[in-house]
Design a protein around this nucleic acid. Sequence first.
DNA 1: GTCTATAGCTAGATAGAC
DNA 2: GTCTATCTAGCTATAGAC
Lengths: 187, 187
Amino acid sequence: MRPQKISDQELTVNMLEILRSRGYDGSSLNDLALVGGLKKASLYHRYPGGKETLVQSVLDHFTGEFEHRVFSVLTAKKKKPKKKLTAALRSIALIYDNGGANCLYRALSMQSGMEIFGAQIRENCQKWLKSFEHIGKDFGFKKKKSKLLALESLIKIQGSLVLSNIFGDRKLFIETLNDIKNSYLGN
Amino acid sequence: MRPQKISDQELTVNMLEILRSRGYDGSSLNDLALVGGLKKASLYHRYPGGKETLVQSVLDHFTGEFEHRVFSVLTAKKKKPKKKLTAALRSIALIYDNGGANCLYRALSMQSGMEIFGAQIRENCQKWLKSFEHIGKDFGFKKKKSKLLALESLIKIQGSLVLSNIFGDRKLFIETLNDIKNSYLGN
DNA sequence: GTCTATAGCTAGATAGAC
DNA sequence: GTCTATCTAGCTATAGAC
């Protein structure tokens, strides 16, 4: 057994960078291999199913980050809601590099990506909504208002990511996170 | 001179459908030719510069729709602001097929598309912000508040398009348009 | 103005050496 | 576990017949 040139974890993180910025069709196996310091044939040893399973694995990692750093924080039983929301929003800022990095879900949400990963992307966005709905109720809002706040939060995150990407202006994303926080704290 | 199989206008509209749903890398010249009932070699007669100029032309058409149906409406001197905003939002609903169609700017905003069209996409989004800022002032809001409302509108449109696309739920987009209208009318 | 044919390249994927 | 070499299919693009 030869040693791995790069760990699975590290390779996944590097490939995430490519995929979230170039999308499914725009990311070649050559590109994906190179960011790991590998040749593309080597990727088939780690991902025998090819590109689809490779991206699947990166998508799972990305989703795992949310489950671990955002969803589980928001739905935790202890702590005050304000502390939980603040921590979750800080994690979101981290995951999106303060607006400098795209959302992988969005990057994969063009037709080719949606055909393959649509169901999972939908499912994960649903979890997002549920966990934000949870924190809304935790703040004392009624169910309907909590649902609305959750949806508005997700809309604002996705929209501000699109725009901070187009304008190359991270401030736009940061301020939107603050706006979301204020929508829960009651402006 | 043989007659065209399909008019430039019609071909552009058909190709827009492909590009906005599949992005730059995901749309092959073969796909783009077929929706016009042509072979891909024929596209080089209309667009001698190849794929880049072809997409450029579709992008120009898309931007023209906004200039004509949205920006010019919002900045018109006559009429009451409410009527202008209502008309503009109705046009936006039309352009995005009530949330069923993607934004071409977003579809082209992955890395490969941004390298080529980034400057124009940025410029057009700036025009969007300016025209919404204009209507804000028209409603009597101060400059700062008008700028904020404009930015929030664009964020909400882009975000709700991403989500209505992911969830396959146009209601989400329609309700966001209403939300934007209300943000100008003072809830 | 559109077509067939094809060049030249790069994509995803596989075989087998080391 | 990674590599070189290679296959096939698809891509963008061009040449030239009709």
